[in-house]
């Protein structure tokens, strides 16, 4: 299974994709917010969104899986 992981610790500010959606490598899937900075997280590979594992406002650690692709 292909996944997208968080690139920093922070709260989920915005989720940009939903299950069933096609994403290309490089597309932003989530925007994280931490310490007054908004940082987008991009998919590293292309695929279809199978599951979004987080909700807006959730706290994630660096390396946590945010989105599953198939």
């Amino acid at each position: 299974m292909k996944t997208v992981a968080s690139n920093m610790a922070g709260t989920v500010f915005k989720i940009l994709v939903s299950p069933g959606q096609e994403v290309k490598a490089g597309d932003d899937v989530v925007i994280l917010e931490s310490m007054k900075m908004e940082v987008p997280v991009a998919a590293e590979v292309s695929g279809t969104v199978a599951k979004v594992r987080v909700g807006e406002g959730d706290f994630v650690n660096e390396g946590d899986i945010i989105v599953e692709l198939e």
Binding site: M8, A9, G10, S34, M35, V39
Partner: peptide, 13 residues
């Protein structure tokens, strides 16, 4: 600062 020293991304925890 609580941040990555190379990428400057925040590091709360």
């Amino acid at each position: 600062c609580a941040e990555d020293p190379v990428r400057f991304l925040p590091s709360p925890g």
